[in-house]
Design a protein around this nucleic acid. Sequence first.
DNA 1: TTTACCGGGTTGCTTTTTTAACCCAGTAAG
DNA 2: CTTACTGGGTTAAAAAAGCAACCCGGTAAA
Lengths: 209, 209
Amino acid sequence: MVEPTGLRARKKARTHDAIADVAITLFLAHGFDQVSVNDIAAAAEVSKPTLFRYFATKEDLVLHRFADHHGESARVVRERPAGVTPLTALHRHFRAGLDRHDPVTGLNDHPEVVAFHRLVFTTASLAGRLARYLIEDEEVLAAALGPGIEARLRAAQVLAVHRVLARANWQKIADGRTARQVHPEAVADADRAFAQLRSGVDDTTRDGP
Amino acid sequence: MVEPTGLRARKKARTHDAIADVAITLFLAHGFDQVSVNDIAAAAEVSKPTLFRYFATKEDLVLHRFADHHGESARVVRERPAGVTPLTALHRHFRAGLDRHDPVTGLNDHPEVVAFHRLVFTTASLAGRLARYLIEDEEVLAAALGPGIEARLRAAQVLAVHRVLARANWQKIADGRTARQVHPEAVADADRAFAQLRSGVDDTTRDGP
DNA sequence: TTTACCGGGTTGCTTTTTTAACCCAGTAAG
DNA sequence: CTTACTGGGTTAAAAAAGCAACCCGGTAAA
């Protein structure tokens, strides 16, 4: 993956981030529906068409953070080391996410991150669009897992596990506990969930995370 | 004069200032000849053609600060209140500059400003180009003062006075004195210089500053 | 019930910026 | 005496950004 490193690319990335940052700041401060894209463009010192060149919809201003992980599961499966089953690779990857307190695992207690998640979960249009993202994620993961209906089922189950685990972690943190406190339970939950998944869909090969 | 206030104009002004600031910082740190325009463009995160769209020459990166005052004397003369002679208007204007410690009067002891002046005076190409600026300034001042050779002479004398006064002030400050200490002498010097000028070129009307 | 505004997006045209390549002069190295 | 850099400065084409004007659906005021 050769990412361009010229001035153009650097400034493009900066503009992208600047718009997203100002948008999320405004959303967190006033609520998604209370902030217009005009407000965001003005605050980011960018024209409206420019804003829409970077983000297809208003929702994407928020969800690009998830979009960054778009297709990640599929990639993990495709790029897994030889001799490792897909499920094990996904399990390890999720555990690694927990260990580094990756926000997508829900196991992150930075106030901004918590507020961000609440914003997403409590704003209908955002939750809706997020669901669409998950469906696409599911499709590419299914493709990575192989052909046929079985792959699709497995993909759906894996992403369901992700969703439930992340949501549970977030809920515990929203209840006031720290990420560090929750971490052991989160790992245990994940191990249990993936074990259950394995016994159901992957019991031909036992290799543990 | 309707100055545009849109995004475009704002960003243009910012780019201009960003380039100039980074250039002067580098020049002060390493010397004019030790810094290439490539270095400046890179540090300012701008391409070389862009840099040259904002500044015609490398010298202008430094001298635009003087260029900001370009034609100022002529303007002062043109926009003077009714009943005030050109010389008086210029005298008052210079005194006002002293009072607010305007760097162009040389009466400013901020280390950066002092270093900046030393940079200009001790770098041949800069001093040379600055001279060209003064000549142009002289031409428009002469035009503002009227037609004929007399106007040109008066303009030359006025700007000579400016130059000498500013240089004297800067020298005192370079010797370690503060602007506040020097201020009274600077005012006295200016009054003496303009009085001498007046008795020579303007003794038809006596109105003092 | 029009009418007017607001907010999410889009379109076409212009200006600005990047890019890469080049010119020219000086100068250091082989 | 070439040859190859380096540094100031330019050029042409392509990408990016800005601007103004517009569409459309909703909703509030007249």
